[in-house]
Write a protein that binds this DNA or RNA. Structure first.
Lengths: 242, 242
DNA sequence: TAGTGGTCTAGACCACCTG
DNA sequence: AGGTGGTCTAGACCACTAG
């Protein structure tokens, strides 16, 4: 059950990605597009506001809507903001490159006070601890530590952690979509331990992303840290006023 | 002329910040709030979707809307996403701390091809080059290089660059609001040159933010790089699905 | 079943931009 | 003046959650 305004947004995004509209070009007005797609202006506006937030168009009062210059790059974008859903690493990049993982550790542990607080469980409750090195085209690019509430996800097969998408597994396992991802990004340097796992020199620059992931019903299931090679990742940020 | 849904959003945000609603607490339903504020549900929903994006509440289908745990921290947040407008450094932090600047350089130069492309002007057109060290409570925390289209802003007083808010000056100068800020965030290490300007050791971790700033009519007026001490700044990221 | 948020309609008027 | 996006109304029905 996909909302009409999402379908329309994706349809127009497709038109932009397939160059049916060119960069800088004016696309049809709200009233025209509403007629074309057979919806009211309110619905169409929801689509276009989304598309603006995702950085594909600019809406300019009195003038119209224009296709934005798209940033191409040779590094990967964490959070390109161009998705309706929280995808996770595998689903985010699997179309662009070969994604794989090396499982370093997977244990069931009692939650420390800090972990318990972040996962909104009682200290001592069982949580999965998972450490993985993640690779793009067979090059290690990041280390990820995840704590997962074992009351939400009892069983996590190790084969999945080496190959599949954990987020996809959790969505099918729980029957709920992932909706929230609140994260904080910091800059830092790779420690000896992390650098060894990635096969690089310690002291190189790192982007650290930490945060919690929640299902659409508000359940927190994941608290994670990822330590990303700063030469491999950037973060895009499309700020639109009002 | 402030839109009603912005007023309502700010009113409820205020209620949260002043603890009139507590963390985790359920706030009144859309229908109740719409009645209270004397608007329709559609208008009220615009307010609440904004508030969700800014990370103050979570909307949960079938349950209600809940106040989110607010992250407190001893470092400063670049892009806390909690503003309707692009504020710039001075206006972003002046309520939290004493903000000042040290003007290192201010020249009028012909645009290089790269600068010209970013500012959407012809190479050789005049642009302001401004380098400033910016301080929070008298501690240097970042170096910022800005290129500003001199066709949009002819005159920039040096006193302003040492004391005031450049963005505020530009909004009054042009009579237009700043609407777009498209930026890219990277991790890196401080070079000798930058470290000397900040009075720190080279090789310390840095967050580099580069991007262009536009007015509400789409005019690009600023192309800038800022080099931020990674021990002083973080970036918050509230991802909400759909 | 009752209450919640999610989506959508068919209008209306306003503010901004261009010729 | 005519076209554009920005805001807002007064409804309606659907999907999810709880008791």
């Amino acid at each position: 059950m996909v909302a009409r305004y999402i379908e329309i947004k994706n349809s127009i995004k497709d038109d932009i990605l397939h160059k049916r509209y060119r960069v800088g070009e004016k696309i049809p007005s709200e009233r025209e597009l509403a007629l074309i797609y057979g919806v009211t202006r309110v619905t169409l506006q929801k689509s276009m506001h989304l598309l603006e937030q995702e950085g594909f168009i600019e809406r300019i009062h009195g003038k119209g809507m224009f296709v934005t210059r798209v940033i191409e790059d040779n590094v990967y974008m964490l959070n390109n903001g161009a998705s309706d859903t929280v995808l996770g690493f595998s689903r985010e990049f699997h179309l662009q490159a070969k994604i794989s993982s090396r499982l370093i550790s997977h244990k069931l542990l009692p939650a420390t006070p800090e972990i318990a607080q972040q996962l909104a469980v009682l200290p001592g409750q069982h949580v999965h601890f998972i450490r993985r090195v993640r690779l793009i085209d067979n090059t290690p690019v990041l280390v990820e530590d995840s704590w997962i509430n074992a009351a939400v996800i009892t069983e996590i097969p190790d084969t999945l952690l080496n190959e599949g998408s954990l987020y996809e597994y959790i969505e099918t396992y729980t029957g709920k979509k992932i909706k929230f991802y609140n994260s904080v990004i910091e800059g830092g340097l790779f420690s000896r331990e992390m650098a060894d796992l990635l096969g690089i020199a310690p002291g190189l620059p790192m982007l650290k992303v930490s945060g919690v992931t929640k299902l659409e019903d508000g359940t927190i299931f994941n608290y994670s840290f990822s330590y990303n090679r700063a030469d491999k990742f950037k973060i895009k940020n499309n700020w639109v006023g009002k």
